[in-house]
């Protein structure tokens, strides 16, 4: 592995470089496929992969990712299984990685044990949608002890909370584009420009926009406003359709999204 520039900062470190961040659910449809998909995404130019640790009750997810979680769990995926996937990826790649999951699997694994594994495997951060600003202390401390950053989220309803959240944000800020849950949307109506402007008042930390993005046009627009675009459901949908054979299509899709984002000045 390369000498790391403080973890996640290398995702956004090139001046004027906009990031394309991809999500997938670990173990959907199986562990080997997840390893293959991540390496394929790397080849296609992805800047960061969010690996979803499946949870039985993902309350912030739309139907597409809910079903991926259930497929993965039915296939026997566990938290240890996800670490094993990362270990295999790390045999040939030093691609920046973060986890995305709900608090309970992390809590149950034991914070110290979980983040110790993250450090060992070079997972630089974690996104936990059911861990708001008020509760992050109990996770942030053990995570920081292992050099893992807990990524904060800002939502369309955050309003007066933005300053506090952004002021303490680590790694990058995940800006939730829309109300509701994850999933492809035809149109993103939130005034993201003004949300990003409020964030900028409080911090220089990069921010990337996720929720609802599926087309290169949308991704480019989000990258224009922020430092990157995050795409989940659109990729998981490809996997749902193609199963273990999804790699080529994922590669094509990621390449097209990366090109759209990279074209943004």
């Amino acid at each position: 592995m390369n000498e790391k520039k403080s973890g996640l900062s290398r995702v956004f470190d090139t001046p004027n470089h906009k990031a394309f961040i991809a999500f997938l659910t670990a173990g959907d449809p199986d562990a080997d496929s997840t390893v293959k998909f991540i390496l394929e995404m790397e080849k296609a130019g992805v800047d960061l992969v969010e690996i979803g640790i499946p949870f039985s009750d993902p309350t912030a997810e739309g139907v597409v990712i809910q079903e991926a979680d259930l497929r993965s769990l039915r296939g026997g995926m566990t938290t240890d299984g996800v670490f094993e996937i990362v270990r295999k990826v790390r045999e040939s790649s030093d691609l920046p990685l973060v986890f995305m999951t709900y608090l309970n699997p992390v809590f149950h694994y034991g914070y110290d044990r979980f983040f110790g594994k993250c450090r060992e495997l070079g997972v630089d951060g974690i996104i936990i949608p059911d861990l708001p600003f008020e509760e992050k202390g109990e996770v942030e401390e053990p995570a920081a002890a292992h050099g893992v950053e807990v990524i904060s989220m800002v939502a369309p309803t955050s309003e007066d909370r933005i300053q506090a959240i952004a002021g303490q944000a680590k790694g990058f800020l995940y800006v939730v584009s829309s109300m509701g849950v994850t999933g492809v949307r035809k149109e993103i109506k939130t005034d993201l420009t003004s949300i990003v402007a409020s964030i900028r008042k409080a911090t220089d930390i990069p921010c990337a926009i996720g929720f609802g993005i599926s087309t290169p046009q949308q991704a480019a627009k989000m990258a224009e406003i922020s430092d990157g675009a995050i795409v989940g459901s659109a990729i998981v949908r490809i996997i749902a359709g193609k199963g273990a054979d999804a790699a080529p299509e994922i590669g094509e899709y990621v390449a097209s999204m990366k090109a759209a984002v990279a074209g943004v000045p």
């Binding site: 989220m153 939502a155 309803t157 955050s158 939730v176």
Partner: peptide
Amino acid sequence: SRGRYGIHGGQYISETLMN
């Protein structure tokens, strides 16, 4: 956080609902 009963309770919910 607020709303604790011993170690239990709290507000483990998405940012969208916090306000």
